[in-house]
Structures are given as C-alpha cells and as structure tokens.
Amino acid sequence: MRAASPGLRAAVILVALVLVAPTLVVIPMSFTAGTTFSFPPDDWSLRWYREFVTDPAWRTAIFNSLRIAVAVAALSVVLGTAAAIGLVRATFRGTTVLRALLLSPMTVPNIVTAIAVYVLFLRWQLNGTYLGFVLAHTAVALPFVVISVSSSLQGFDRRLETAASSLGASPWTVFRRITLPLVLPGVLSGAVFAFVTSFDEVVIALFLQSPTLTTLPVQMYKSVTLEIDPTIAAASSVVVVVVSLLILLPQLRAARRLVKENPA
C-alpha cells in the first residue's frame, strides 16, 4: 500500500465517523427508563426491549415484515433469475430495452412509485393487503436479483450445458445440476438483497399500510410521528446490531484470512 498522507488519513477517519457514528446513538437511547426521546437518558432500563417483543402492535409488525419479505425474496428470486437467464441468452434484438425495463424500478423515485401504486391499488382493493405489499415490494426488489444473477452469469461457460445435454441430460436436469449451482451465489445474494429491500422498505409501505396490516418500518415511523414511543429505539438497536453482525462476521473472517496470508 502506498501510504496515504496525514491529511488524507484524517479525512478518511472523519468520513468513516460520519458514515457510522450518528446511527449508534440509537443504542444508548434504547436503554432509557424514560418515556421521551430525551438524550442522553437520565435513567436506564430494559423496558423498551420488553415492549418491543411483547407489545402486540410491534410483534404483529415484525411478523408482517418477515412474512412479506420472505415472500418477496422467493417471488423475486424466481422471476428475476428466469429473466436474467433470458437476458443473457436472448438472441433477439431489443435486449437493451428489456434490460432497461427490468431495472426501471431502480431509477424511478420511490415516492412516485408509492403514490402511483397507492392510487391504482386503491381501486383494485389491494391496499392494506398481504398480496398488495408482496406485489409492490417485489417490483422494487426485482432489479437487484436481475443484476446479481446476470453478473454471476457473465463468464459462465455455456459449453458445460451443451456437454451435459449431449450426455443425455434433460433440459430440466441441465438447469438443476449445471446452471443453478453455477449461478447460485448470484441467486443467493439477490435473495438477500430482495429480503432486505422489502424488510426495510418504508415509503411504499406507508401508503399501502392499513390499521390491520402494518410493517416494522411503518410502526417505527408511527412511533415517531404519531406518538412518542421509545420502543423505536429498541427496534432500531436490534436492527442495527443484527445487520452489523451479518456484515461484520464474513468481512472479519475475510480480513483475518488476508492478514494471515500477507503478514506485515
């Protein structure tokens, strides 16, 4: 590594703090004994964690978010993988247009998608329904699956498939035994992306939600805007810690391996 100058080093440390530090205030906040957002708290307790796991509104919200995100991950993986394979294999013209169409939900401002879906789903009576949430979230999650699967398809040696089928494998067997294992990393990271996109999605959810169907981010939003409910601090802390662990563990393992391989 070429040493970065002291100024550059300082800038990087500053930006790293800007990236990570602000969010961490939710953790001390979550241990408050008080019923306001007054920070730092005067007294400490675990009451908001208890509230988070026992209060029916929060429990239902968590459960709803999970069951919606699981369905979104499954649906977008199936549709997205098929489309990505189609895109890479397509021999006809117009694949650029198709690709742009498939990725378009990424480039339309979320709020516009949200109001558009809200207005049409109102007419179709899909607002506040499980199906409505799954459909709308799958549309925004799909591009991530298409991208991650198509990038894992690049550099895919198609002669492997030809070889398998020339040895008598049926198309389905070829897909199951050759194609799928090779694109699996892309499919899995697409699934994770889709799950997180739905689990964390709040703008569309705010419009589609109803008193009977609320997701975790919507419940968090309400706990700030409609009421002052410090349970959101516990909810945020849980999410921050879980996400950090999920990202840190593989990174740490990779880092340790690198350090071992190149000592000094």
């Binding site: 990236l19 990570v20 602000p22 969010t23 961490l24 205030v25 939710v26 997180v196 964390d200 709040v202 981010p217 968090m220 939003y221 700030v224 959101i232 601090a233 909810a235 945020s236 802390s237 999410v239 921050v240 996400v243 950090s244 999920l246 990202i247 840190l248």
Partner: peptide
Amino acid sequence: LPFWTSLMARNFA
C-alpha cells in the same frame, strides 16, 4: 454498514 442498516433507524438517530 450504513448501506444495509434500516433507513428508519438512521433517520431516527
């Protein structure tokens, strides 16, 4: 870390 962390949590912070 922030890229994957809940948008609501970060705004609440």
